[in-house]
Design a protein around this nucleic acid. Sequence first.
RNA 1: GGCCCCGUAGCUCAGUUGGAUAGAGCAGCAGCCUUCUAAGCUGAAGGUCCCAGGUUCGAAUCCUGGCGGGGUCGCCA
Length: 588
Amino acid sequence: MNLFAHFKAVVEAALGELVKTNVLPKDADFSRIAVESPRDAAHGDITTNAAMVLAKPAGQTPRQLAEMITDLLQQDDEIEAAEVAGPGFINLRLASSFWPKLAAEAFKLGDDYGRSQTGGGERVNVEYVSANPTGPLHVGHCRGAVFGDALANILQTVGYDVVREYYINDAGAQVDVLARSAYLRYREALGETIGEIPEGLYPGDYLMPVGEALKTQHGDALLSVAETDWLPVVREFAIAMMLDMIRDDLASLNIHQEVFTSEQSVHGEASTKVKDILDVLRAKGLVYEGRLEPPKSLSEAERNDWENRDQLLFRSSEHGDDTDRPLVKSDGSFTYFASDVAYALDKFERGFSQMIYVLGADHSGYVKRLEAVMHAVSGGQSRAVVKLCQLVKLFRGGEPVKMSKRAGEFVTLREVVDEVGPDVVRFMMLYRKNEAPLDFDFEKVTEQSRENPVFYVQYAHARICSVFRNAVQEFGEDAVSVDKLLASDFNLLQDDAEIAILKRIGEYPKLLEAAAASHEPHRVAFYLYDLASEFHGLWNKGKESPQLRFILASCMHVTLARLAFLRVIRYVLGNGLRIMGVNPVEEM
RNA sequence: GGCCCCGUAGCUCAGUUGGAUAGAGCAGCAGCCUUCUAAGCUGAAGGUCCCAGGUUCGAAUCCUGGCGGGGUCGCCA
């Protein structure tokens, strides 16, 4: 159950009564009504702005209207008190019997608590990583990878039909560079001394295995043929190996996208789709022959160099882009933008209503055109949502980690995962808003201390597991079985700290919905941190006040209620951690 | 120059899509403490939410204009 959805319905029922008695007009707009928890717990458990939002259409002051609403709400058994406060807020204090009821329901749902159908099975495509298949993933890819994966998890949890996708940029000039670089390694594998890698080729030694594999497969046969003949062969071979490597890198973070779409297959030379797509676009009136002004950012010299010619343009400016964009280069081949269009159309035809693109912040200039393209090719039926992830800065003990891009010296994703583990990487990448830069310190993130949120949250989960181990040891497996816990009396949870935690548990379903709607996985991370914090606080209270401990040997019924309560917390921690892709450990 | 993002406590950051007296964690201050799992606990203090207007019952949040920081900007990928 969703606490807030439940009471929103209660409030709306009361408003319905007021419509019947003509206090409110029939066409009153309820859409701006919020039912949420107040910032300050002293204001009660649930608050709504209904009276303030509807005062004008009702022709009353907010407080007058609020009085009428509270009179109705007070009749509800689950509401102990309803009062008007401030400019016209209605604050509800729930009956003390309500929280135990919520705990019991959450217990029954177990790991499914928080799951909902608010997405209504809407088809959503989440595209993330999509790195060029020219080398291993580096740290820069890491954040988007984790972000996209966690976002997909959240959307699934609240009832969207999600496809995780990787777009392979295997059609441009950079894969030819890859092929030439791999060919050099091939010659090296055959015994040639290649010396320094020439400027413009990829220097990384991750291509040496590609050279070796080429040798194994082709012997020296590729040495004697012209580049036009070996290049396509080497290219496809190298791309396949690079993709395998990338998949392995992603697997180290437990990321497994189900669809890998190749740019070549969408619009490459071999594809016949290109013409079809152009025909479709023409039919929709989206392309025309025309000229573009030189961009203002060009220098005088570059401006003189600008080739002012008629070309095939896409009408993206009519769909929100800054300018129309070329589809065909002067050499007759298609632009990268053309493949964006083709790919957007491809996605649309696969039936998604929402396409999420997770990109690095350096792609911020592409947001408008992606949105415009999707709007254009779908006729406004699908929307593109672009999420930008800011850079990750690496530190070690407070000192920035130096890397130089030109020697191919970059920190790979794999190196980071191998050093600190996937749990730490995944949690830390989500413990910041996506559009804020992120500092990642190798030493701090592995520290086992309160300052480290990864540890802090996992530790809460592990602590609960440890209480259960103790309980089993003390009372035996049967005495604390699931059935016994289910039958326990949740009304025995009466301490303020326990109730406060139950209230937070009650917020969880709504939190997931909000995280999904705003595409903000970090909210889950912060929620878990807060929940863990409250749990640790309760634990500490038990040190001072033994009667608050979870296991009270002298009082079995209280013990059972508290164990059931702990289990609910554990469900939520485990559920949230799994959404983030972090392993809920049982021991530390 | 155009566009995008950011600006909140000394530091690092949240802020429930416009709600009430703006919150955490560090650091600093004052006490306590030897554990149901140790990686401590409690409390107090800390603010011109970058600035100036605007929108309305109500703005850190939305709009306009500035200031400061970052990113990006031809047929590259």
